[in-house]
C-alpha cells in the first residue's frame, strides 16, 4: 500500500482511438479463446484428427479421392466451430458474467465490440485454415478452384454462423446456449455433408438439407476446391439468405445483459 502523489487521479477523460480500442479488445478475445482448452479442442484438434482419420481409414465410402472429398467439408466444419459453436458459448457466458454489460459502460462502442469479436474469429479461422490445409497437403490434397471464391464462401459462412451464435447467446441463458450450440454442431456434423455425402440421404431429406447453412458451406467449398467451380450459385444464395435473416434477427433481439 503506497500513497499517491497529489494529481495522480486528476480527471483526464477521453476515449482511445477506435483502432486501438478494437485491436486491444480483439487481442483479448483471442487470448481468452486460446486459453480455453475445450475451444482449442473443438476448433483445431478435432478437425485435424477427423482429417487424418477420414482420409486414411476407409470406414466411410465416398466418391473419388477421399482427401479431396473430406478437406472442404472439414474446413467448413472448422469455420462453424469457431464462428458459431465457440463464439456462442463464449458470448453466452460473457453475458451471464456481466462482461458485455461492463464493456457497454466502457468507451468501446457496441459495434466496436462486435467488430473485435469478428476480427478475433477471422484470425482464428485463418489459423485453422492454414493448419488444416498444411495437414491436407501432407496427406496428398491438391486443391483446385478460385481463391477468391473460397474467401467469399468463408466470409459468408462466418457471417451466418456468427449471427446465429449471437442470436442464441443474446437471447438464451448461458447453459441453454451451451447445450444448443453443441447440439447444432453435432447435428450438422452428421447431416452437413462433412462425414458423408448428402446423397446418402433420401431425396426429400437431401433437398431439405441443401437449404441449411453448413451443408451449403460444405457443398460450396467442395464444389470449388474439388471440382473447380467458379461460383456455386445455389450454395452462395443459401448463405446470403441465411446471413440476411440471421443478422436481422440478431440485431433486433440481442440483449447485452
Amino acid at each position: 500500500m503506497t500513497t499517491t502523489a497529489p494529481g495522480t487521479f486528476t480527471p483526464q477523460p477521453g476515449r482511445a482511438p477506435l483502432t486501438r480500442m478494437i485491436t486491444a479488445q480483439a487481442a483479448m478475445e483471442l487470448r481468452i479463446t486460446l486459453r480455453r482448452g475445450e475451444s482449442v479442442l473443438l476448433t483445431l484438434i478435432i478437425p485435424v484428427l477427423m482429417l487424418f482419420g477420414l482420409a486414411r481409414v476407409d470406414v466411410i465410402d465416398v466418391p473419388g479421392s477421399r482427401i479431396a472429398f473430406f478437406t472442404p467439408g472439414i474446413l467448413a466444419l472448422a469455420i462453424m466451430s469457431t464462428a458459431f459453436t465457440g463464439q456462442a458459448i463464449a458470448t453466452g457466458f460473457e453475458r451471464q458474467y456481466g462482461v458485455l454489460k461492463r464493456l457497454g459502460a466502457s468507451p468501446l462502442p457496441r459495434w466496436g465490440l462486435l467488430t473485435a469479436k469478428t476480427a478475433a474469429v477471422v484470425v482464428l479461422e485463418i489459423g485453422q485454415i492454414a493448419v488444416l490445409s498444411v495437414v491436407a497437403l501432407l496427406l496428398g490434397w491438391s486443391p483446385r478452384g478460385s481463391f477468391f471464391t473460397v474467401v467469399l464462401l468463408v466470409l459468408l459462412g462466418t457471417t451466418v454462423f456468427s449471427a446465429l451464435a449471437l442470436l442464441l447467446a443474446g437471447t438464451l441463458r448461458a447453459e441453454a446456449t451451451l447445450a444448443a450450440a453443441n447440439l447444432i454442431w453435432f447435428v450438422f456434423l452428421v447431416s452437413g455433408g462433412v462425414l458423408f455425402p448428402l446423397s446418402r440421404f433420401s431425396p426429400a431429406v437431401r433437398d431439405l438439407l441443401r437449404w441449411l447453412p453448413l451443408p451449403a458451406l460444405a457443398d460450396g467449398m467442395r464444389a470449388v476446391l474439388r471440382d473447380g467451380a467458379l461460383l456455386p450459385r445455389h450454395d452462395v444464395a443459401v448463405l446470403v439468405v441465411w446471413a440476411a435473416v440471421l443478422v436481422t434477427a440478431t440485431a433486433s433481439t440481442f440483449r447485452w445483459e
Partner: peptide, 25 residues
C-alpha cells in the same frame, strides 16, 4: 458494478490493461 463484469479467464493485469487501452490518458 456490484458483481461481475470481468472475463473469468482473464488475468488480473491483462484485464486492467484492456480497460486502460480503451482510454485516451
Amino acid at each position: 458494478l456490484q458483481a461481475g463484469g470481468i472475463y473469468p479467464g482473464a488475468r488480473c493485469a491483462e484485464m486492467l490493461r484492456l480497460m486502460a487501452s480503451l482510454a485516451a490518458n
